[in-house]
């Protein structure tokens, strides 16, 4: 494997929401990176901080009440957490683009597809409307939408969900970004359409060499598209590694639980596994491993100390005391001093 420079490097990122009840940490000290041209999957249940992470990269955390309280986000070596709003505007849509979960509501109902597709070009690239239009039509064709010229004058409500998500992807790719963040891009779509959209994203990734950060709760989606996976739980990275390794040898009890709860058609009679309990409310666990309360392997230490990330194999690390005999993964988690608050 060639060593490619990371397009995106996130280190020790902390994001909190400041509410009337005080500070609520949504993302707590997470590290990950996305290399040029790769597809990284970020997996976790709702409320684990996936979307907050992606919005932080875009600089779109709703603020107030949200705020990045620590860590760094480096895009091609440029620090984003301290970048001005003006600079962030230049980056958004140009260097990093994003597509969202709900294609039904993510397009403005009152503007034509064409006008919405031309926006990014007109904002970021020099050139007139004619060129922007040409580019927009080109993009519509690229994402596999026929009759592109007609679509330019149509409105979102005239399109199906799958078509709208294709338009969203075309819109995101208009300025040829280096990184595409896809926040649950297939969750709201029919299964058949899901597969098409994933295939399209994979194709764009290969043809245009755009790195993709794919956020999902669906392990099936990860298996199909991602090279590497970061599993998040309650604002922390609990396991990361190559997708093949994680599916073959899931280490963190949470990851195991996630994989077991995917329905398997081979065993019809079996009751579907589900992880007991719920995701804890952000900020509610002050001490110990955040998964301890739901973990069948939890022992005394899990309730007292916050486990660090242990490097369990080459390029595979897990935040669990079950792997205490292995070396701590200093590469991913520099600050392993145990928080005792």
């Amino acid at each position: 494997m060639t060593t490619k420079d990371p397009v995106l490097q996130v280190k020790g990122l902390k994001v909190s929401f400041f509410t009337d009840d005080g500070e609520v940490p949504a993302v707590d000290d997470i590290d990950f990176y996305v290399k040029e041209g790769e597809v990284l999957g970020i997996v976790g249940e709702s409320g684990c901080g996936k979307s907050v992470t992606s919005l932080s990269v875009m600089g779109l955390i709703p603020s107030p009440p949200g705020k990045i309280t620590g860590g760094e986000i480096k895009l091609n070596g440029e620090e984003l957490t301290t970048a001005s709003e003006k600079r962030m505007r230049k980056i958004r849509g140009n260097d990093v683009a994003m597509i969202f979960q709900e294609p039904m509501t993510s397009l403005n109902p009152l503007f034509t597809i064409g006008s919405q597709l031309m926006d990014a070009t007109l904002i970021h690239k020099k050139g007139d409307k004619k060129q922007a239009k040409k580019r927009a039509i080109e993009m519509l064709k690229l994402v596999g939408l026929g009759r592109a010229e007609e679509l330019m004058n149509e409105y979102p409500h005239q399109l199906s969900g799958g078509m709208r998500q294709r338009v969203m992807i075309a819109m995101a790719m208009v300025c040829d970004p280096k990184l595409l963040i896809a926040d649950e891009p297939t969750t709201a779509l029919d299964v058949t359409i899901q597969a098409q959209i994933l295939k399209l994203m994979k194709r764009l990734n290969e043809e245009l060499n755009t790195a993709i950060m794919l956020i999902t709760h669906d392990l099936g989606v990860v298996a199909e598209t991602c090279e590497r996976v970061v599993v998040m739980y309650a604002g922390k990275v609990v396991e990361n590694g190559l997708a093949v390794d994680i599916f073959k040898d899931p280490q963190h009890p949470y990851t195991r639980g996630l994989i077991q709860s995917v329905p398997d058609m081979r065993y019809k009679k079996q009751r579907l596994y589900s992880i007991p309990g719920n995701v804890p409310r952000p900020g509610s666990i002050k001490k110990g491993c955040r998964f301890a309360a739901r973990c069948e392997f939890a022992f005394e230490r899990c309730l007292q100390e916050d486990p660090p990330l242990y490097k369990t194999a080459e390029g595979h690390s897990t935040r669990c005391f079950l792997f205490d005999d292995t070396k701590e993964d200093t590469l991913h988690d520099k600050d392993t001093t145990i928080a005792t608050s």
Partner: peptide
């Protein structure tokens, strides 16, 4: 608060 406004901002619109 709507999604499409987030989309517009994600495009880098002023």
């Amino acid at each position: 608060k709507s999604d499409y406004i987030r989309t517009a901002r994600a495009k880098g619109e002023k």
